[in-house]
Amino acid sequence: MKLVFQGLAVVILLSSHDMFLKLDKYKLESYSNVVIHLFNGTFDRSDNVITRDRMIDVSIVANGKRSSVDTTDWYEEDKTTYLNFRTDSPGTYVAGVSTKARSLGMSADSFHDYLEHDGVLDMLALRKQNGTLNDTAIERYSKHVKTIFQVGNKLTDDYSTELGYSIEFILMENPYDMHPGHDLPVKLLFNQEPLADQLVYVGSAAAHSHSHEDDRHSHDEEGDHTHDDLVQLRTDEKGLLNVPISSEGVWYLKTIHLVEIEEQGLTHESNWATVTFAVGDEGSHDHSHDHDHSGDHDHSHSEHDHEHDHSGDHEEGIPFYIWAIISVLVICVLYFVFNRQNNV
């Protein structure tokens, strides 16, 4: 039984654990239908779905108003969870998901692999320092993810809305009002308080021109993707960090706050946070990913994709030709009715 338990833990670890809220496009039109993707795995691949009972909060913030998302708007397909969502009036939107805590027992080796794999370097150093590398671990973990996207032109302050999650990134500037070459100030909160000296990894899905000295290669061991070059940053004493935005594209931040706890049946507790957003025109293009992770990463920016994604546009509610045909028929019928009345 213990072997099965450990084997399961290893499989989960090798699959990676990050959770991201993502969109195909981060610049959207108002009153249009969009699909938000909830990836559980890596930034590029979802390894499993998140069932609704695990979600303790699913929120959309727009124009100063926070609304909960109906769980019936979620659906699962293959290994990804999706949320159907209709944008409202223009503004900068925030979507967030917070999951219930779960526990996972791990052997010392599995735990060690996980710390290395996911870059939880502080805990790794602590275990080395304390000589506890051979200790097993039972970890309670929960994940709290956000995505920030732009609807129409109107920039609003909603991007900095605190959702009140255990851990969350707060963007201090609107990413849709900035250009590459600038730093994006971000605050990290833990239990609504600034979290100091916390490792944060920054990645970009479209930043091919990275030149960071501190790049850290992806832990995606299958090697299916090459975009996961992460920049390692650390928050200051005020929980702040400056993210160098080097190029247009989709950007993400992720962190795992892992601490030892003294609670019956548990040894550790972790809170995971990610945030995704886009900078520049890149965010308006279709970055549709291959969810099966076949290796073909679709960065198609064609006109055809634009047409596709606007299928729910308000303007296209009634196709003009249908309107025209119906109109002509109605006028003809009415004309003959009134003409007959006249002749009578």
Binding site: E29, D281, S284, E303, H306, E307, D309, H310, S311, D313, E315, E316, P319, F320, Y321, W323, A324, S327, V328, I331, C332
Partner: peptide, 21 residues
């Protein structure tokens, strides 16, 4: 009868955004 059809070739579509960009 043909009047409403004058605009058939000019239907406003999602491609407008790409055009504006």
């Amino acid at each position: 009868l043909l009047l409403p059809l004058i605009a058939l070739g000019h239907d406003v579509s999602g491609g407008d955004r790409a055009l504006l960009e």
